[in-house]
């Protein structure tokens, strides 16, 4: 198999797995809502990276920052064992959240990009929108409300002219 994940063009397979795992902590699965990673948002972000090269640097940097922080976290919890490289994927959910919070605190802008792109992938995902009951704005639009009722403005009218002559 090639280095790259079969569905992805920019992210390598290990990056896709890492991103999906992060995304499942950013938007976890709950009741009928899928986790963002499970919903395929890593693949969607890969598409964003293809279409918008300017996003690549911050997303790669954010992934690296998470991996680095995960390594530190694993080392701290296994202080005297000779540690081999342990990444984010090896951590339990609570540890993953702690790692993400640490990265967020240390590099808020990078982390924001990761969150924003995950939200962007999730809330434009047809399956997610179907569960939430959102249709595209057109062609239906939204129901036309009842006409405006001018009687509501009676008090405002009674105050008289509110502008200065000039």
């Amino acid at each position: 198999m090639s280095e790259q994940h079969q569905d992805c063009e920019i992210l390598a397979a290990h990056q896709v797995a890492l991103l999906a795992a992060i995304q499942n902590r950013l938007i976890p699965s709950q009741d009928e809502m899928p986790g963002a990673g499970d919903a395929g948002c890593a693949q969607t972000v890969d598409r964003f990276l293809k279409e918008r090269p300017a996003l690549r640097r911050p997303i790669f940097a954010a992934l690296n920052a998470v991996e680095a922080a995960a390594g530190e976290c694993a080392q701290a919890s296994a202080a005297d064992e000779a540690s081999t490289h342990v990444g984010f994927l090896a951590l339990a959910d609570t540890e993953r959240d702690a790692v993400l919070r640490a990265v967020e605190a240390a590099q808020p802008d990078l982390f924001r990009t990761l969150v924003n792109q995950t939200y962007s992938a999730y809330y434009t995902n047809p399956a997610v929108l179907l569960i939430l009951g959102w249709n595209p704005p057109q062609p239906e639009g939204h129901p036309t409300p009842p006409p405006f009722d001018e009687a509501l403005l009676e008090n405002v009218k009674q105050r008289g002219k509110l502008w200065r002559d000039a």
Binding site: Y119, Y123, P137
Partner: peptide
């Protein structure tokens, strides 16, 4: 829509992750 809400486009404050 839901993405605008999640990103906090108007309030300048995104919906929290987690």
């Amino acid at each position: 829509g839901p993405l605008s809400t999640a990103l906090g486009h108007f309030p300048g404050e995104a919906v929290p992750w987690g």
